[in-house]
Every structure is written in C-alpha cells, then in structure tokens.
C-alpha cells in the first residue's frame, strides 16, 4: 500500500464500508427481508442476532453475492454491489465482471465449512491466493502456513478435510477466507454445526482475529457471550426487519423492544 492510498484508507475509515439501503428480499411469495438499512464502518465488528428465519443468513448471503436483493441497494466502499453505473450514468444490473471486482473485498465462512474435500488443508488455503490473487506458489504457501499456524493447525498442512474434526475444519475455513485479505468477513453461525465441546476453540480463533485485524466483520450468531465479547455493535433482526441495535451493553442488558426482551429471555433460560 502506498502512502497516498493509506491516507485515503484512513479517511475512508471515518465513513461507511458496507451500506444496505432499504433492501428487501422475497423468495417466491414470502418477503424475507422487509426493508433493511444498515451501515458498517471499516473495521467494525457487528453481531447479527435474531430468531430462526428472521433473515440473518439472507442478509449476509446478499453481500457475498450468493443471493440477489429484490429491491434496494447494497454498496461496498461507496460502490453499488449488485448494480453498476452504465456509461450514461444510470444504474444497471451488475455483470459477472463487476461482481468479481466487488467480491475481492468480501470473504465468508459458512456454517457447514464447505472445505474442498479433494485438496489438502494447505491447498485449500493456497488455491485461491494462487489462482485468484495471482500470488506465486511460494508467497501463497508462506501466507497460508502463517495463517494456519495462527489458527493452531500448523501441523495439519498435508491432512485432508475428512481427517479433521469439525472444529479444525472450521478453523481451516477461517484461514482460507482470511488469507484473501478481504475488507469485510462474513460469519454465518460458524459454530452451530459443531459438537458443543468444539465450539470454544473456533470462537477463540475468531476473537483473536477480531482483536488483531482491521477487517470489518459481520457475525451471525446465537452465542450471546461471544457476541458481547467480540462485537462493537449488536443488531437484532426480527421478521425481516432491524428491530433494535446498539452496543452490546445496550442491546443485551437494556433491551428496549419487547421482542428483543422475549428473544433474550428465551436464551437466558436455555
């Protein structure tokens, strides 16, 4: 990064990285998101909570370009994600080229890991840096080994995904996404497919990561303690709309909406 770019980036950090403007999404007849407005600053860690079916996954999948919004605009670094400006200045649906350029700033970790089963752990992590970022094999390997060591898997480079536990797989998936150095990382309930005793190790990795990177993060989670620890802001989603948001203290200790109170009490009871 050159000096000027750094300067721009720091100025940028005051503004918005990701912006949802009145975004709706329907699947057939069901309106899953009913007008979502959400801003995320560079480096900000946002936890997304809410009951099952409230649309959390859909929100982040749209940012990852896995799902297309029905209406509204999502922008990334000031540029619309699903639209591009045509030569006449009008917004037209984005093409694959535009989407690919936008995707380079976004990474995602999935509930079910989605590791590539036919590749070793190391190759899972180096494949995209080599083929997408164009790094040399050595550079990619260095980056990957570094990251795998950070998530505690430095000794598993040559193993295959099927030889790992769920918690280890998910840590590989995190490393695989992080080495791409996105500006925003999306986590979709990354511990809910894990055996309870493996949840901790994955959450620890994410916490450490959150502390030391300036990546923004959107974390969909049902782990309230984790949300409190890691998030700068918690957003509560209900029935396709943002019902309440604020700092962890505000949201978890002083919820104002009845629905959030009900949601939290259900969690505390469990």
């Amino acid at each position: 990064m050159g000096a000027i770019e750094k300067d721009l980036a720091s100025k940028d950090s005051l503004s918005t990285l990701v912006r949802y403007e009145n975004v709706t999404k329907r699947f057939g007849d069901i309106e899953v998101l009913k007008g979502v407005d959400l801003d995320i600053k560079p480096g900000e860690k946002v936890a997304l909570i809410g009951p099952s079916g409230s649309g959390k996954t859909t929100i982040i999948r749209m940012l990852m370009t896995l799902e297309k919004p029905t209406s509204g605009v999502i922008s990334m670094g000031g540029e619309p994600l699903w639209h591009k400006k045509s030569s006449s200045g009008k917004l037209v649906p984005a093409d694959e080229k535009h989407l690919r350029r936008m995707r380079s700033d976004i990474g995602m970790v999935f509930q079910h890991f989605n590791l590539f089963p036919h590749m070793s752990i190391l190759r899972n992590v180096t494949e995209a840096p080599i083929h997408v970022l164009g790094l040399s094999k050595e550079e990619a390997r260095e980056r990957a080994v570094d990251m795998l060591e950070k998530v505690g898997l430095g000794d598993k480079l040559d193993a295959y995904p099927e030889q790992l536990s769920g918690g280890q797989k998910q840590r590989v998936a995190i490393a695989r996404a992080v080495v791409m150095r996105p500006k925003v990382m999306l986590f979709d309930e990354v511990t809910s497919a894990l055996d309870p005793e493996l949840v901790g190790e994955v959450l620890e990795v994410i916490k450490d990561l959150a502390k030391e990177t300036d990546m923004a993060m959107i974390l969909v989670t049902h782990e309230m303690d984790f949300a409190r620890d890691v998030a700068d802001r918690i957003v509560f989603l209900h029935d396709g709309q943002i019902e309440e948001q604020g700092t962890p203290q505000e949201v978890l200790e002083n919820p104002s909406s009845e629905r959030l109170q009900a949601f939290l009490s259900r969690f505390l009871r469990n």
């Binding site: 990852m64 370009t65 896995l66 694959e96 690919r100 995707r103 380079s104 976004i106 990474g107 995602m108 999935f110 079910h112 989605n114 590791l115 590539f116 494949e127 995209a128 083929h131 997408v132 998936a173 695989r176 996404a177 791409m180």
Partner: peptide, 12 residues
Amino acid sequence: GQTEASIALNMT
C-alpha cells in the same frame, strides 16, 4: 456449498 465457497473465494 462447494460452488458457494468458491464464489466466496472470488473464483471465476
């Protein structure tokens, strides 16, 4: 999920 993971890694 395999396709989605490779989209998330920005593959063509």
